[in-house]
Nucleic acid binder design. Sequence first.
DNA 1: CAGTGCTGCGAGTTTAC
DNA 2: ATCACGTAAACTCGCAGCACTG
Length: 910
Amino acid sequence: MNTPSQTSTVRNANVTAERVELHAHTKMSQMDGVADAKELIGRAAAWGHPAIGVTDHANVHAFPEAHTMGRQFGIKVLLGMEGYLANAPVALIKELLASKKTGPVYPPRREEIGELKSAVYHIILYARTPPGLRNLYELVSLSYCSYDYGMPLIPRDVLEQYREGLLIGSACAHGELFHMVLQAHLNRITPDEFEQQFSAAQALYDYYEIQPRANNMFYVTKGTLASEEDILAINRRICELGAQHGKLVAATGDVHMLKPDDVLLRRVLQIGQARDEEIDEHVGAPLYFKTTAEMLDEFAYLGPDLVRSVVIDNPQRLMALVEAFTPIPSGFHPPKLKGAEDDLRQICEARCRALYGAQPHPLVTRRMQRELSDIVRNYFADLYMLAHKVVKQSLDDGYIVGSRGSVGSSFVAFLAGITEVNSLPPHYACAQCSYTEFTQFDERGEPRPAPLDGIMAEVGEDLPPRICPQCGVLMQRYGFNIPFETFAGFEGNQTPDIDLIFAREYQSRAHRYIEDLFGKDHVYRAGTISTLQDLMAFFFVQKYRKKTGEQWPDEEVNRVIEGLVGIKRMTGQHPGGLIILPQHKSITEFCPVQCPPTNNRDNPPATHFDYHVLQENLFKFDILGHADMTQVQLLSEYTGMDITKVPLNDPKTLSLFSCVKALGVTEKEIGTHVGTYGIPEFGTEFVRGMLDDTRPQTFADIVRISGLSNGIDVWLNNARDIIKNGHATLQQCICNRDDIMHYLIEKGMAPFSTYKIMEQVRKGKGLKPDDIMAMREHTVPDWYIESCQKIKYNFPKAHAVAYVINALRIAYCKVHRPVAFYASYFTVKRHALNAPVVAGGKRAIRAAIDELEAGGRCKLAKNEQEILTVYEVALEMCERGICMRPVDIYKSDAARCIIENGDIIPPLCC
DNA sequence: CAGTGCTGCGAGTTTAC
DNA sequence: ATCACGTAAACTCGCAGCACTG
Ligand SMILES: Nc1nc2c(ncn2[C@H]2C[C@H](O)[C@@H](COP(=O)(O)OP(=O)(O)OP(=O)(O)O)O2)c(=O)[nH]1
Ligand SMILES: [Mg+2]
Ligand SMILES: [Mg+2]
Ligand SMILES: [Zn+2]
C-alpha cells in the first residue's frame, strides 16, 4: 500500500478525504506526552486534516496555545481532555478521601489509591458548546479541588451533573467500555452480565474509540491476551456494539508524540523520572501522530466500508458537532468598586490641595486631570481605588507599603498613596503657602526658555535649596520627572498591572484583605505551569544512557534534550499575583481553578491557566513580599525615627555610592571601593563594580545605575562600552526604559511608535526593521540602535526611583544609625547568619571568609554565597567598631536582633 | 523497642516581578 | 582574573527528629 511519508509536511495526495485525530496528548500531559502543541497542530494542518483534538491527561493547560495555533495554521482545534472517571458513588470517594484521619489529603501516595484505582477509567471529554466548555472547566476545578486522590478524579455522578454541552468518547484501553469488552472477551463476566453492564455504561458516551493494535500490545506482552488477534477481535466487537447501540465508532491514535523518532523521548522521560525499577513496557509504544493512510492501513482488517467510516467519516462527523468558540472570552473584565471614579477624584483633589494649595500650579492640575480622564476611560479607576484601600488597610494595621513597578509613573497613583514616587517634573513647593515653582516650566505651565536660575537638576531630590519668595521658609523639593505613558501607553490598549510590596509577614494578610473585599470566589492566585528545562532534560538523558548503556552522538543528545524541554512537570502558584474578577463573573467562565497543595491550604485557589494568557482579559494585582519593607520597619523601631521621612539628599548618604569615607573605614579594611555592602540591590560585586566605574554623585545618577544594573546586556556589552568608547555619557545612555521614549520623542518621532519601541526593547525583543529605518530617518545614531537591540530587560524609571528611595533610607541609617542598620540587616538575613563566627570578631570572620573562598568563589552554592555576603557585612561592622555578642538564651529574641549598649545580640535561631 | 507517621527543614528547580 | 541582574515565592523530595503504637 502506498503509505505517505511520516515526515511529509504536505497534504497526502492518495486519499480523497482526511481523518481527524480525536485523541492527542501534548507536552502538558504531565510527564507523559512529548508532542509540542504547535508542531502537532502544524502537522495536522500540513497534512490537510480538517481538525485535531487536544486531550491532555486531566488538564486543559494547552487550550490557549492550541486555540491560537489553530488560528495560525487555519485548522479547527477541538478542546478536550482525557479525564479520570471514578466509577464509584461520590459518597464512597469522599469517604476514601477523608479516610486519612488528620491533616491534608496531600500528598496521596500512588499505592494508596488501592481499591479506588480499579474503578478509575480514562474518558475523553470535549467541550462541544460554550456551556460545555464552562462545564468542562467546572469538572477540572472539582477534580483538582475536591476529588484529588493522587490523580484528579471525576466521579461519575458529578460528570452526569455537568454533562451538558460535552462530547464524550470512550478513550483507550484504560477506558470503561474497552475494559468491559475485554472482561467479556476473557469470559470473566457472562454474556448476560456484559449485556446489562455495557448497555448501562455506554449511555454516557457519544462515541466509542478503537485504537491501533500497537497501542494495546502490552496486553499481549503482559499475558492478559494471547495474541494480536485478540486485540483485533476486541476492536471488531466494539464496532459491532457501536452499531447495536447507535453510537459512532472512531479510530483514534492516543497520540503521545509527533513522529516515530520521538518514541525515544517518551522512554527517556519515563526512565529519567522513574523512582524505582517499575518501568512500564507500554511506554515504548509507537503512539505517534498517524496519517490517514496509515490509519486506513492499520484498520484494514475491518473491511473496506467500516475502515473508511471509523477512520474518516465518523471522526469528521464528530468534529462537525463541535461548535466554534474561544477558550477564554475576549475583552477586559476588571472588577468594580462602587463610586470608584468619584472617590478617586476626591482623594486626588484633597491630596493635591494638601500639597499644592487650593489653587495648584496649572501643570499639577493639568497632569492630574489628564491622567484621571485616561484612567476613567480605561476602566482603571476601580483598580486605583482597590490599591488605595489595600495601602490604607496596611498602614492602619501598622505595616508600611512599598511601591514598585510602572504605576510609579502615574501622578494620580502618587496622590492616591499607591506609590511614593511623585512623577511630576522637578519642582519646589512651599509647605506653608503652597507656592510652587517648576525649574523647567513657568507659572502658566509653559516650558521656560531657560531653566529657573540655571538650575539643571533632573529630579527634585537633586535641586539646590531654595527659599519661598512669599514666606521665606525653605521649600520642599519634589518630582522625579516620569511620563504617565510608561505606565498607561498612548492609546489605552495595554493592560498594566499594579504592583505593591509589603513586609513578608504582612503579604498574606494583604491577600486576605482583598479576599474579604471582593469575596473568596472572586479572588484567585495566578497559577504557573512548570516545565522540564535543559538541565533536568540533560540529567534524564544521562540516566537513560547509563541504564541502557547506549552511546549517542551529540546531535542525538541535543535533539532529545530539545524535545524534552517544555514538558509539564507541575503546576504552581504565582509569588504574589492575585486575579480579581468582576462581581458578575465567575472564574470558570475564564478557566478552571486548582487548590494549592500541601502547606499552602490558606492560599486562595490558583487559576489553571497562567497569568500570561489571562492578562488581556482579567486584572492582576501584584501583592509581593520584600525584605526591604521589613528592614525599613525594623529600622523605624530600632531608631524610634520614621524612616520614611529621612532625607534622601543627604550628602554623606549619597557618598556611600561612590566611596567608603562616610563609614570611617578604609577601602582595604572592608575590601571594596564603595560603601554599599548590605544596601539592597547595590551591594553585590557586580553593582559595586559599576559604582566604582561611574562614581555617581546625584540621585538621578543613582537611578541610572539602578536601571543599568538590572538586566542582561544593559551595562556589560552595552552602556559600559558606549561610555568607554566615548559615544555617550552615562546621562545619554539607555538606563531606564523611559529614556528610550523620551529620547526618540526628542528626536521627533511619533509618540505612539516610541512607546511601542520602548515596550519591545524592555522585553528584550529588540527592534523591528521598520523601527530601525524610522530611527535612522530621525538621525538616531548607530550606537543607540545597537544598544536597543542588545538590552534583554529594562526597568521603568518609576521602579528604579522607588527602589533607590528604599536603598537611600537604609543607606541613611548605615551612615547615621549604624547599630540599627546592622541589627536590621542581620535580622532580615538571619537564615544566612552564623552568629558564633560573627561574635568571634574580625579574625574569626576573616577566617570563615577565607575558608569559603578557598574552593574558588564562583564554585559556591547559592546559600554559601549568601553566607559569604553576610560575613562581608559583618566584617565591615567590626571595622566600624560595632560588636555582635553571642546568642544569649535569656536575652535573645526568637527571630530578631536586639540592641543592648551598642552591641547586637543575635536571635535564638542563629 | 522497632516500626510508623507527622512535621519541619534544606537542597534543587522553576517561575515570576 | 572575571566579565556578573537582583530578589521573592512555591513545589518536590529526602532526611532527621519526635510522638505514638503494637
Ligand atoms: N531586576 C528585575 N526586576 C524586575 C524584573 N521583572 C520585573 N521586575 C521588577 C521591575 C518592575 O517594574 C516590577 C514590576 O514588574 P511588572 O511585571 O509588573 O512590570 P512593570 O510594572 O515594569 O510594567 P507593566 O506596566 O506592569 O507591564 O518588578 C526582572 O527581570 N529583573
Ligand atoms: Mg507592573
Ligand atoms: Mg507586576
Ligand atoms: Zn511659602
